[in-house]
Simulated scan of single mutants.
Amino acid sequence: MKIPFFKYESGREEHSNVADVLDSEDLNQVAQLEEEFASYIGADYALATSHGTSALHLAMLALDLKRGDKVVCSVNAYPNVPEVVRHFDAEPVFIDIEANTYNINLDLLEAFLEDNQSKKLKAVIVTHIAGTTVDLERLYSIAKIYDVKIVEDACEALGATYKGNKIGSTGADITCFDFSPHLKKNVCNGGMLVTNDDEIMERAKLLSNHAIARDEDALEYIYDVVDIGNDYSMGELEAAYIRAQITKQDDNIARQQEIAQMFSEALDGTSHITVPDMSNEEHPFSLYIIKVDKNRDSFALDLKKEGIETGLHYIPLHLLTYYKSKYSLKINNYPKALQSFQQVLSLPIYPNMEDKEVKFICEKIKQIAKTKV
């Protein structure tokens, strides 16, 4: 049996929407997606982008990030997070993680902000690992105290909730989504920038199309450029496909939670394996992350030999050559992230995974675990 890390799903609705575009029957898919997405999330504004990294980069533009500014983020994030900061010649500042959730440690974040108050400190980017969140009420309170903007990286948190409210509607200045995130590649790319701030959205819309301004009463080919922007636009075909998928997201999360429960029940007590905490009923399990206490990479290779692909979320940023050398970072600077990195392993989990595939994965993990001393 071959089980990929992720398998996209395409049904009748996706085919119908895409066919409408190809037949020139509905060329307003992007606008419809933005409207429907804002309604689904419960936010005032949504702006579609070409991919999730575009949404993050546009967020930095919308916040008017400049050279020498500082943006705080978790050391456990995908490289696109500090990358969009560096593109402005601004400085990412890394914070260690919580051991159990792999998210940014709010105690360390607050301590850093207390000790480093500066007008150059513009924002905090918070990545929701596996779709689960930090204490967002506390996060927003910290942001108000120290006057920093909060940008949520929700690449794995589409449809996830915090105290009953969907991520993107809970109080962040900007939330960025990715419809084809790291290791879970879809057949199309796409991202979304969400905000309740009309000034942020107005600036984001302007800059998302080369900062081109037009007079509504003038000829369509007459335009002006009023700032430095870029092209972050999503195509109509991508929007058509994604529109259909959004309607299924809540059901997808329910299925992921069901699969996660199956994993945890089957693997609980397995030697060398620690399963995730199942007490958070709102955890969407966009990722199912276990800990392997004996040579994680060897364990992953053994699973690969059995036809089971796995993932890693993520290699801590301070271990990557560019950031390690640029900021003279030491391997032990972020001990919690380092320890987690040496043990964590993401198992395949997606809505169209069959029960027999879950059972197969669990059986193989148990067999392999018995060979480890």
Score class of each variant (00 low, 15 high):
175 T>L: 01
152 E>T: 14
139 L>Q: 00
243 R>D: 08
143 A>T: 03
58 L>S: 02
250 D>Q: 02
151 V>P: 00
220 E>S: 15
260 A>R: 05
151 V>I: 04
108 L>W: 13
215 D>E: 14
31 A>G: 05
349 I>Q: 03
137 E>S: 12
233 S>P: 14
306 E>F: 10
28 N>Q: 14
21 V>W: 02
306 E>I: 14
181 P>R: 04
290 I>N: 04
219 L>P: 15
247 T>K: 02
15 H>N: 15
103 N>E: 01
125 I>D: 14
248 K>I: 09
66 K>E: 07
141 S>N: 11
307 G>H: 11
253 I>D: 02
215 D>I: 08
106 L>K: 00
185 K>Q: 12
261 Q>G: 15
332 N>C: 08
187 V>D: 13
36 E>A: 00
145 I>G: 07
42 G>Q: 00
30 V>P: 02
49 T>Y: 00
233 S>T: 15
9 E>A: 11
352 N>W: 11
163 K>N: 09
134 V>L: 03
191 G>R: 00
255 R>P: 06
101 T>H: 02
10 S>C: 15
85 V>C: 05
298 S>V: 14
250 D>M: 05
297 D>Y: 08
240 A>M: 05
262 M>L: 09
92 P>H: 11
121 L>T: 10
17 N>C: 04
68 G>L: 02
58 L>T: 06
197 D>M: 00
237 L>G: 13
188 C>D: 15
335 P>E: 02
126 V>C: 03
313 H>C: 07
127 T>V: 08
43 A>C: 00
361 I>V: 03
348 P>R: 01
205 K>C: 14
115 D>A: 14
343 Q>G: 09
70 K>D: 14
184 K>E: 02
85 V>R: 12
63 L>D: 12
312 L>C: 09
45 Y>H: 04
185 K>C: 13
330 K>N: 04
291 K>W: 14
345 L>N: 06
128 H>A: 12
45 Y>P: 02
147 D>M: 14
248 K>Q: 09
278 M>I: 10
88 F>D: 03
253 I>V: 06
221 Y>G: 11
359 K>A: 10
240 A>H: 04
82 P>W: 05
300 A>K: 13
142 I>M: 00
87 H>I: 12
178 D>G: 07
95 I>G: 13
60 M>N: 10
179 F>Y: 04
51 H>S: 05
230 N>I: 15
353 M>I: 02
302 D>T: 07
373 V>A: 09
266 A>N: 05
140 Y>A: 08
292 V>H: 07
309 E>R: 06
33 L>M: 06
75 V>K: 01
105 N>M: 05
314 Y>W: 14
187 V>F: 13
292 V>W: 03
300 A>D: 10
84 V>A: 06
10 S>N: 15
341 F>N: 06
223 Y>K: 09
